[in-house]
Structures are given as C-alpha cells and as structure tokens.
C-alpha cells in the first residue's frame, strides 16, 4: 500500500463569475468553503478562528448592552456606502447611544440564490473594513440561502454587545423640562442618498450617505462630563419621529427651531423635488443628544471638535407639556406640530 494520503483538493470559489446556489446554505462542503473563503478570511480574528458554534469571549466589567438590527436596504450599493458597512455602523451606533463601548458583533446573512459572489465579496470586504476601523470584531456569524425571488440579493442582521461604565445612565425617559436638544450634523443625508439612487435622480453634487460609527464621538461626549440625559440615532423616521419617541418616553414637550437645523442644500433640493420633509428622512451617522441646559455649550464644543460632528448645533429645548407634543418654530415665523411619521413618507402628488 502506498502510505501517502492524497491531499484533498478543493477548487477555489469562482468569485469573478460564480453565484450563490442552494448548496451554499446546505451545511455541506460548499457552505464550509463559502464561509472559509468569503467570510472567515475577511473578518479574521481570534474569536472567529475558534471555529465553534458560538464565540467564547472574555467578560468585561460593567453592565452589558445588546442591540440587533436587520438590514434590507435597496439598492445594496449607494453613494457613500453599501449594506455591508451600514450593517456594522447601524448596530455599533445602537449600542453606543446607550452610552456603551461596543465590543463584539455577530452577523447573520440571508442570501438569495443567484446572487453574484463578486457583489457578496464587495459587501463582505466593506463590512470587514468598517469593523476593523471601528475596532469592533465580528466574532460569530451564520449564513442561509433562500430560493430566487424569496429575498432581494442579501439581507444582513447584525447583533452587537458592549459595556456601560458605572455612572453612565442614558435613556429616552430621562429628559426634563429645560433640557437642551443638540444634533451632531445635517439631517436627511442617508435617506436622500438612497432615494436619489432609487429614483435615478442626478444632481450636480451627488448626495452621499452619512453612514458612520459614532462610538468614538460618543466616548468623547461622555468624557466631557456634561450631564447627558439621552442619546439617540435618528434613523428611520428621521429627527421628527425620534424626537416624538423621546417626548413620549420622558412625558415632556419639545420645541425646536427650524432655522437651527442643518440641512445640506442638495438634500433640501432633493427633498423639495420628491415632496419629502428632511426632518423625516433617515440618517445613519448622526445623533441627537439631550443634556442639562448648563452643559449645552460645553457639549456642543466637544461635538464640534470631532470630525463626525463639525456641524453640530443646538436646535431646541424641552418644556412641560401634558400632551407631549413636538413643536417647531418655523423659519417663516409661525409655529406648528412636528408629528410622528404617518405610514411611509409619501410624496405629495400635486
């Protein structure tokens, strides 16, 4: 007998021309290969390398925060980002606005049969780069494949955990009358970047998504010692909807000043064109901070010193209101409600 065992040979994934097929979710060799060559190599870290069903992680002191977010954006690639980096930033931000230092991510992929591997690779690389830049590794994951027509290319769910230091207590329920409302920058960039692609609108200045991880900005804000009551990232439903959530949670009224809210001219123009209101359009790299009035200017200075919040602004304040209305002084001199988003934000037709 020849004692030499022939080394198993597996032909490498054909990234350039290959497509996801049902075998990539079967649990067999094809799936193992996809995980190895596509995911494990990109996300590589010591926890993922353990190769078990779950990641075994060292614990850190403090209270744990856990958040999860499913991503189904269309188109998958848009100016300023793609579903990959978005799925990393989105979950990191959900953990960070709780006042936590994000530590680990888990990622779950639902792939549609027929999805080009080259696109999947682009998404995975973007995700890995975002995780590396943020310093938050993807430590475990899962992949499922569904038949063509049962999904739209790729859906990604990410889950994140982080720890909150003692003394940090942020909640939408903490806001008191007199507190001041700040935002970290211009509103509506992400939503309009997506809409401009979806509607094939071309503007002289392209609208880029603001997708970004906010945990370093938040760490600087917490370090400032300002008495921050609450942080939120105004994603779906935009600033208006998030403020309504906070007003309800804290049982206060909020009054904002339209002139103080930064909106990029190109975003304002695109909103005007489509009949949308930038206050209701999604952001992916912005936050709302509500703090004690005495600390507002100091917090504003800290935010403006950070590259992700150069356009930060004080936009309003909380007051006692049994109806928990969010109201706005319009730049025109009048006053109006800023209500919850009703249904989808539907453009006016005439």
């Amino acid at each position: 007998m020849n004692g030499e065992v022939k080394k198993g040979y597996v032909r490498a994934l054909d990234i350039k021309n290959g497509r996801v097929d049902m075998s990539h979710g079967s649990g067999g060799r094809a799936m193992a290969q996809l995980i190895e060559e596509m995911f494990a190599s990109a996300f590589d870290n010591e926890y993922l390398r353990q190769g078990n069903d779950g990641a075994l992680l060292p614990t850190a002191g403090g209270r744990l925060v856990m958040a999860t977010d499913a991503h189904v954006v269309s188109p998958l690639f848009f100016p300023g980002g793609d579903i990959g980096c978005l799925s990393v930033h989105g979950t990191i931000n959900d953990v960070a606005v709780m006042g936590a230092k994000p530590l680990y991510l888990a990622a779950s992929f639902i792939l549609e049969e027929g999805f080009p591997l080259i696109d999947l690779q682009r998404i995975v690389h973007s995700m890995a780069a975002a995780a590396r830049e943020a310093g938050v590794p993807v430590v475990t994951g899962d992949t499922k494949v569904v038949e063509q027509g049962k999904a739209d290319g790729v859906f990604i769910t990410t889950t994140g955990v982080g720890v909150v230091m003692d003394g940090v207590n942020l909640s939408g329920a903490n806001v008191r009358p007199g507190d001041v409302i700040l935002i970290s920058g211009s509103m509506g960039d992400h939503g309009m970047a997506i809409m401009s692609r979806r509607e094939n609108l071309d503007f002289d200045v392209p609208i880029e998504s603001d997708t970004a991880a906010l945990h370093h900005l938040i760490a600087a804000m917490l370090e400032s010692g300002a008495d921050i009551r609450c942080l939120r990232d105004p994603t779906r439903g935009g600033l208006a909807t998030t403020l309504n959530e906070i007003a309800k949670q804290s049982s206060v009224g909020l009054m904002i000043n339209e002139e103080a809210i930064p909106v990029k001219p190109v975003v304002a123009a695109a909103c005007e064109f489509l009949g949308l209101d930038p206050l209701y359009v999604a952001n992916e790299g912005k936050l709302i901070a509500i703090c004690a009035a005495a600390d507002a200017e100091r917090l504003l200075a800290v935010m403006r010193a950070h590259p992700l919040a150069g356009d930060a602004a004080i936009i309003g304040a909380a007051h006692a209101d049994p109806h928990h209305f969010v109201q706005m002084k319009t730049s025109f001199g009048g006053r109006r409600n800023v209500d919850w988003l009703a249904g989808e934000q539907l453009p006016r037709i005439c």
Binding site: G253, A317, Q327, D339, R348
Partner: peptide, 23 residues
C-alpha cells in the same frame, strides 16, 4: 394626504386645539 384639511391640521396644527404650556 398631507394636503387634506384634516391631515394638515392633525400633523401641523393640533397644538392650537388645546392649551399648551409655552416653551
């Protein structure tokens, strides 16, 4: 529609129907 009299009043002008403590 946001152009409808009721939706416009509900979304933008509801604060006028009740007493609101001013900011």
């Amino acid at each position: 529609s946001s152009e409808g009299a009721c939706a416009a009043h509900y979304s933008y002008g509801r604060f006028k129907d009740i007493e609101v403590v001013s900011a």
